[in-house]
Design a protein around this nucleic acid. Structure first.
Length: 153
DNA sequence: GCCAACGTTGGC
DNA sequence: GCCAACGTTGGC
């Protein structure tokens, strides 16, 4: 089964690619959007993700990560004092799921959002759609190849 | 900091 | 089931 491709969005102040490199692997906690959750539930071990830094001066894809554990309940939904607590969720009836991702490799150069927007072959990429806010998105194989190509420029 | 775009909530 | 109000996201 060939790997599928995804994009993981994060604010580097909260969790950065450097942090993932240090930690090696991390549970992708805190996703509270059903579509993003559903995307994670479709992930298989070995799938690859673009690691994207958002909400900064130059938003950019900076690295590649790998799915190392398929979707399982996000423990932060049960943490009463945490930011991600959801009182509707019960341990036997979780609402929010997460996957574990591992550091794979850094891109030779970050590929900025502006650079991707300037690439005609990437029109249609979910990330570039107007007003899109999904924190976990699918990436088409050809889009993946193009972004990696831009990363080598 | 602003604000457009979006998802979610809740009244009806 | 509709839709207005609200909160959040995230680029700029």
């Amino acid at each position: 089964m060939p790997p599928r491709y995804w994009l993981f969005k994060t604010e580097p102040h909260a969790f950065s690619f450097q942090q993932l490199q240090r930690d090696g692997t991390t549970p992708w906690t805190g996703v509270r959007n059903f579509q993003a959750r559903n995307n994670m539930m479709e992930m298989r071990v070995g799938d690859l993700g673009l690691f994207y830094h958002s909400s900064i001066a130059e938003p950019a894809a900076v690295g590649i990560c790998k799915v190392v554990k398929p979707a399982y309940p996000d423990f932060t939904q049960f943490e009463r004092d945490g930011d991600y607590f959801d009182g509707r969720a019960k341990p036997d009836k979780p609402i929010w799921m997460m996957v574990d991702v591992a550091y794979a490799e850094a891109l030779p150069h970050p590929v900025t959002l502006a650079r991707m927007r300037a690439e005609p072959r990437l029109t249609g990429m979910a990330l570039l759609k107007r007003g899109q806010r999904l924190s976990v998105q699918p990436v088409m194989p050809h889009e993946w190849d193009i972004v990696l190509e831009l990363a080598r420029e």
